[in-house]
Amino acid sequence: MLRAEDVSVSFAGGARVLDEVTLGLAAGRKTCVIGETGSGKSMLLLTILGLLGPGAAVSGRILMDGLDLLRLSPRELRKARKERLSYIPQGSGNGLNPLYTAGSQLTELIRFHREVPQGEAVSLAGSLLAQAGLDDPFRVMASYPFQLSGGMRQRVLAAMGLSGEAPILLVDEPTKGLDRARIDLMAALFRGIEGKSMLCVTHDLRFARQVADSVAVLYSSELIEEGSCGEFYSGPLHPYSRAMLAALPENGLKAEAGFAPPRSGKVAAGGCAFASRCREAVPRCLRGRPPLIAAGNRRVRCWKHAPEP
């Protein structure tokens, strides 16, 4: 359905935000991309949408139905965005225009996708918002974004993302700024979406577990592990993934199993990106960058899973 191949992104200042990321999204499946702030996960979405701006140098391919999204004309790109891709930005940010009511933005989008009179668009908007779990959709529609809570904005944005026919949803950090109970509601909302593929970027491991079919982990702009949700949560392969999962409350907050404090001095270029914090590092880790190694249906970027040379 959607496949990123060896996608690298760097900015004029030299900062590299994605490093040869290869990732596939199957039709009707939900994939969560997990990573810390700064791991490049939000950049992945912007890259797919072609929204990085002129300062970014992008290489690789992003294939969708035989099209390479990175090589479309502006016109084709607009068409792809309208018909195939649907972006749901963070509810905590200002993904909604501050000067228009939520309702007017939603109806504008509905009428952009289907030719309906305003009155019908308003009704459609109301029912979409109700499905997104908002109790008083028409009050929400009359509100300006600053009058809504982060969770309500997130729901409005989700409803907007679902208002078109686009088969692919690109969701950015839907849990940011929400408390646990609201995150669970949000997870139920996204889990319940049917008939669409979803690529959701999050730093919330619990949310990912509730929502995803498969999981990909980004660390320091590299993809370091990818696999199905069940396998990942029952037996993570990469030391970084293991440490993250061990630090979850339900796993007893085992911080000692987590990262070593970063070692002083920079790891020699070309080594494993995680080497400076890895408790399991071996000399080999510092010498060469580990490739993505297939392990059953999963892939992991760690020397420990490579056959001995």
């Binding site: 701006g53 965005r81 309208k82 891709l85 972006y87 963070q90 200002n94 993904g95 909604l96 225009n97």
Partner: peptide, 14 residues
Amino acid sequence: DEEYVLTAMSRGYS
């Protein structure tokens, strides 16, 4: 660079 402008672009608006 505002998020709502990026979002509007992501919708395929002209």
